[in-house]
Simulated assay, not measured.
Amino acid sequence: MSLVVIKLGGAVMEQAEPALKLFRTVADLQAKGHQVVLVHGGGIFVEQQMQAQQLVSDKLDGLRVTPDEHMPVVVGALAGYANKLLVSYAKQSGVDACGISLADGGITTATVLNPKLGAVGTCQAADPALVQALLSAGKVPVISSIAMSAEGRLLNVNGDDAATVIAQLLSADLVLLSDVDGVLDGNKQLIPQLDEAGIEQLIADGVITDGMIPKTKAALATARSLSRPIAVANWRYPERLAGLLQGEPVGTRILP
């Protein structure tokens, strides 16, 4: 039985039909004997809540600067609304899902990434027991990117990094779903595969920018730690996931 971690961004959660289509694919994967774990961010929901409360939210190197006073909004948007919205979509698609966060069950440990970023964390894999128990019960864990430090401070973790850690925790395949077909070159053409040198060159050339920088670096880190390629693919075509798990070329493969 194969195990795959799928990382979702906020875009797929904004519209019901793409999300339902994704969960129908998850149901098909389960029927074929695959175990699935979903990890999500949801920056678009954070932005909406920030604007509603007239809070200014800056970014540094593609990461959200998060003062502690913003964390009630961030936690509510990610571990609250976004997480339960996905569980709702799962239920509507016949998938038995359970919403948790990086902070639950000791599945990860977390520390502050950079004091300049505020309550933004980096996390490490810790105890897989909770996730394994959910999988053994036939459930799909839906994990939000809210973590907790050893001192109990809530931390906001980049969603791609969160998915990387969960894949490491479970020694699972990882698929990072994006709003593009994969990593694109300067002419907007799909790059079938990339290694570290290729990623660094594209970043230096300004081809890989913004949120795709942490996405590709997270995929590279996971590819290294698991000694297997990681896929960056388009959430609009979840039906391709089954082929991807069978080794078919889908999206961009990040090589270790």
Rank of each mutant, 00 (worst) to 15 (best):
L176I: 14
L176Y: 09
L176M: 11
L176H: 09
L176G: 02
L177G: 10
L177Q: 09
S178E: 08
S178C: 09
S178Y: 12
D179P: 01
V180R: 00
V180I: 13
V180F: 06
D181L: 09
D181I: 11
D181C: 05
G182D: 04
V183H: 01
L184C: 11
L184F: 12
L184K: 11
L184S: 08
L184P: 06
D185W: 07
G186I: 08
G186F: 10
N187F: 01
N187V: 01
K188P: 00
Q189K: 13
Q189V: 01
Q189T: 09
L190N: 07
I191M: 11
I191E: 02
Q193C: 08
Q193K: 14
L194W: 00
L194E: 02
D195G: 14
D195C: 12
D195N: 15
D195K: 15
E196V: 03
E196P: 01
E196I: 02
A197I: 02
A197H: 07
G198W: 13
G198R: 13
G198T: 14
G198I: 13
I199M: 06
I199W: 04
Q201D: 12
Q201N: 12
Q201P: 01
L202C: 07
I203G: 04
A204W: 00
A204F: 01
D205L: 14
D205N: 14
V207C: 05
V207E: 03
V207W: 00
V207F: 00
V207Y: 00
V207P: 02
I208P: 04
I208S: 00
I208D: 01
I208C: 04
T209F: 12
T209I: 13
D210H: 15
D210G: 10
G211W: 12
G211A: 11
M212V: 12
M212E: 09
P214H: 10
P214C: 10
K215P: 10
K215E: 11
K215M: 11
T216L: 05
K217Q: 15
L220M: 14
L220G: 06
A221R: 15
A221T: 11
T222E: 01
A223L: 04
A223H: 09
R224D: 08
R224W: 07
R224S: 12
S225L: 14
L226S: 11
L226C: 04
R228Q: 15
P229T: 13
P229L: 10
P229R: 11
I230V: 15
A231R: 03
A231E: 00
V232K: 00
A233K: 02
A233I: 07
